[in-house]
Design a protein around this nucleic acid. Sequence first.
DNA 1: CAAATCAGCCAAAGCGCTTTGGAAGACTCT
DNA 2: AGAGTCTTCCAAAGCGCTTTGGCTGATTTG
Lengths: 340, 340
Amino acid sequence: MNLKQLSHMLSLSQTTVSRALNGYPEVSEETRRRVMDAAKRHGYRPNPSARRLATGKSGMIGYVLPTGNAVDIDPHFVEFLSGLGDYARSHELDLVLSPADADDQETTYRRIVANRQVDAVYISSPRPADRRLALVNTLGIPFIVHGRSEGFDFDYPYLDIDNEGAFHEAARLLVQLGHKRLALINGDDRETFAIHRERGVRRALAASGLTPGERHICSLTMTEENGYRAARRLLEESEPPTAIVCSSLIMALGVVRALRDLGLTIPSDLSLVAHDDVFPWLRPENFPVPLSTTRSSIRLAGARIAERLAARISGLEEGARGEVWPVDLVVRGSVAGAPG
Amino acid sequence: MNLKQLSHMLSLSQTTVSRALNGYPEVSEETRRRVMDAAKRHGYRPNPSARRLATGKSGMIGYVLPTGNAVDIDPHFVEFLSGLGDYARSHELDLVLSPADADDQETTYRRIVANRQVDAVYISSPRPADRRLALVNTLGIPFIVHGRSEGFDFDYPYLDIDNEGAFHEAARLLVQLGHKRLALINGDDRETFAIHRERGVRRALAASGLTPGERHICSLTMTEENGYRAARRLLEESEPPTAIVCSSLIMALGVVRALRDLGLTIPSDLSLVAHDDVFPWLRPENFPVPLSTTRSSIRLAGARIAERLAARISGLEEGARGEVWPVDLVVRGSVAGAPG
DNA sequence: CAAATCAGCCAAAGCGCTTTGGAAGACTCT
DNA sequence: AGAGTCTTCCAAAGCGCTTTGGCTGATTTG
């Protein structure tokens, strides 16, 4: 059932039927009702390919997926996706993943924009002065950044959590508990989120006249093994930290393992706080000692981004609005006063 | 730059240019070369929307993503995606994720097929007599199942690992080591993979005249917490198992935690084997006691599925070919003879 | 009352590609 | 030499929608 057939059986022109269905004003209410009725009754669904060719709109949002043999997709992605799906599902919005060589994403961005494959894109894990951002900005496709970049002379729309604030709070708490030697096991510090977190920690320390030890700030990809290694290295120093702030639950698993290997206990020997993106399959309250966390649901962020992208596509949202979500500090048994 | 312009500047018809570019035989080699050259030089890229409208082919593969408030996307998905991307990247194949209400995926399948949004789909986590499979089979769109279903009177193309064999081997090893009380902490047993795993374990036990205790086979969604709970329940029985086979590393984390809480040690009190899908961020060799695993890279499966889908789309693969990958049993320190 | 306005509809021209059904010319074959 | 056969190309008809530009008859306006 296509437009031609439908309009024919209504004895109307395709123009009128099309306009009736798309809510244009130049069609009488009665006609519109008739058309709508018939469309529903016959299960008419406009062919998206045709609509697309005519309008250039695809009804999909895009994401360029960095891939490569040495490239692992962030496990957070799946939770983000859950959120995105939660919103998109009810709006018949599909998501197009365009895999790209991690070292040459530009080609892919250009392709999907030139081909009008998607109406909007989102960008995640941005770095300072991220080229993708500059590119997408000049290409003129609607977009939203999940996270923030830095060092641009233009503004852009984003959704981020207050990473600096969160880690500032966490570190401040630890300092208040008397910790003088505080370490940060951070994610990849080429990414902005990690930079912000480090900034938060440093600021909290500085406020009490402390500076982190040279090697007490480390940056690694967020695996259990790296958490272990970092913790091990830190705790075997001559003056080990008495508190650690950690950028992910997965790394925290490794930290906990390292402590065990060294015969140290939480929180008497070491206080630990980690960031929790809220995975359903790994919860901080279920750590051997319940883990204090800075918590922010990445899934909710996914839903919000979908919502905002939809708004941008339909022109309801404009400009470079940035949105920063506060982060909860949830204190559990893994923190205590600094050891004697 | 579109076809019209290109053909005009070559003084050829659109027909000829189109045919030259698409490799049809009825154009001379010389002309083809001229056309190819000009196309490359001017960076001509056929407009996919137009091509799509004309041919009905989209150059994308689809996946219906079950979503909902109570629905969590499987964390394995991300690794699978990495693999899919590895292949798709080099073939300019995009992946369309269509989020759907987990309880009504049929509507979405019908929509993407009717709209010809994608050229092929894949289905994951199938259940016995899975309705999606029957649906997709009748809709006539090329597809591949990741995993297997059961109870159909038709064959279908799939890629699966030998779950039964893997768990049979694992259980057999434990039995050979003298374990009489063996428990299985399985994933959701409405899914075929879990059924196969259970079958493997039962078969190994039966071969030595053993049957698993009533409550020694449990089925739960694969979270750390569920692993903990199941292990705890099992080990607090009057006749606790001396060996556990576990369907995922994440659950195994919980098992290890439970053991610790109960003051038990691996492998002297309990032998443990888990299935490893090969996550970059959590490795069995890094468990407190290196974990024995049945190992199969889900990422490689993703790449293979992409490859086969592409082959199906282009007609290179036909029929209901099933492919079953063997699974490695990797023995590490977590298994030992049954305690005294 | 003629002129201007307006609501409501339509025919047709795109969008940019593929594909059908020839047609023209070159070549073979008897 | 004329009939048949290839080879190589083309014009035009789709694919199914949106949108431009106008037309008609009814209503308002000076």
